[in-house]
Design a protein around this nucleic acid. Structure first.
Lengths: 233, 233
DNA sequence: CGGGAATGAAAAGTACGACTTTTACGTCAC
DNA sequence: GTGACGTAAAAGTCGTACTTTTCATTCCCG
């Protein structure tokens, strides 16, 4: 249960962050720093630093004479990669996967369209390479290898879009894809239609066909959403 | 230069965060906690807590025997509202506005489509009300009032989408709209076409016409992007 | 002359204790 | 019942002492 931790701070932060995002402390719950220090057997100094970080993620709010109050989900920094990781590791992983997939379905098509306009030759090459890698590993239960190419592919698209906000979603997409793959108990091979679409996106980007790249990526997104509906209706 | 600050921590955090995001410390710059403590005339405790928060935003990295290293822009948590605010207040505000507007153009149409499916009657009412408010204040240089309605409108759409990730972009949109309005020196009235589109989006959502809501919102987004191109080509 | 191990020191990490400041809450007078 | 007031609880701040990690220099041996 308790992570090894290379540093007291990390350990306490991970434990508390996970517990809060998992809903173990309902919103409104108040924690006291002294109590936490005692519970984790660390100094108040360490606890205070952890609380400050949690506060910057809007998971908690610290007020004098009251204590550290757990905030409602609505105010959490749900874009913080750390928060995303905690939530994906916790109880409402399905809900979280759905939210993130919907976000992907909005962002990635537009990113692909922009990538078609801005991708460097190097990025085009990389894109094609990853797409081919997906093809090569799409049969014979080589899901782990497939996943690597899939993640790399989407990361290149997001980076090539030239938009910094899109680029930073690379980690999120990686988490989603990883979560999805590992959640399906990894038996079936990936959808052949999806594989083909990825190859076509690489083509469209190489040919600078923004509209086509966008539309194809939208189809990939639709597929991902449908897959979710099948899994958790 | 130094913010008033109700709390030493907030003050130091705001000052340092702003300085770093403004690029005053190029990536690779190392700061030492003792030095910072001296500079701000606070204890090392306070500085350490600030550094921990900055670290959680991936603005800096703290390593033993080395110090606190400023990280390159690519690793910053650009979705952190605090980081967004700092950057919008700083030097590369134009770049930042553009990035965020592109993000909006990807997200809001999809959100509007979902809103058409999920909006409660109360949300529909609110949407119509804000759209009408925009119409009422769109003439006679009542830009401040117009802005309030505009922000409220987009916030309702994002919330009504039922997707938590979208909902949390409400603050971002608010910042973008505010920044845009205040940056145009506030003389001209808003584009009448945009006003009409907002009214129509409200209609489409009320009538549960997802495709139309999405398409209309896409047009709003296109308008916003063009506006940017005119301002900063 | 080169490379690897021992050594030293610099800076962050952790701990503790004392003190300050804010503020929720209960009390008492009106 | 309402409002002023005092109390105490908890976070905020500080200073200091100590530990741990790790970079860099040096020195020894091959």
């Amino acid at each position: 249960m308790t992570t090894p931790a290379q540093g007291l701070h990390s350990h306490v932060l991970a434990t508390l962050g996970l517990a809060i995002t998992a809903g173990e402390y309902p919103p409104g719950t108040v924690l006291r720093t002294d109590e936490l220090a005692q519970r984790f057997d660390v100094s108040r100094t360490v606890v205070r630093e952890v609380v400050r970080v949690l506060e910057s993620m809007h998971l908690v709010e610290s007020r004098r004479r009251v204590g550290v109050t757990v905030l409602p989900t609505a105010s959490w920094n749900v874009y913080d990669p750390q928060v995303i990781r905690w939530r994906l590791a916790g109880a409402d992983r399905p809900r979280q996967l759905r939210s993130l997939t919907v976000l992907r379905s909005a962002v990635e098509p537009v990113a692909a369209g922009l990538a078609a306009l801005h991708a460097t030759p190097e990025q085009c090459r990389e894109l094609t390479e990853q797409a081919l890698g997906m093809v090569a590993t799409s049969r014979g239960r080589r899901l782990e290898e497939y996943l690597v190419h899939d993640i790399a592919f989407h990361r290149v698209v997001l980076n090539a879009s030239g938009n910094e906000m899109f680029a930073r979603l690379g980690d999120v997409v990686a988490e989603v894809l990883t979560g999805r793959t590992h959640h399906h108990v990894m038996f079936e091979d990936p959808d052949p239609a999806a594989v083909t679409l990825h190859v076509q996106v690489a083509e469209a980007v190489r040919e600078r066909d923004a509209a086509r790249a966008e539309e194809l990526t939208r189809q990939i997104a639709v597929g991902a959403l449908q897959e979710l509906d099948v899994l958790a209706p």
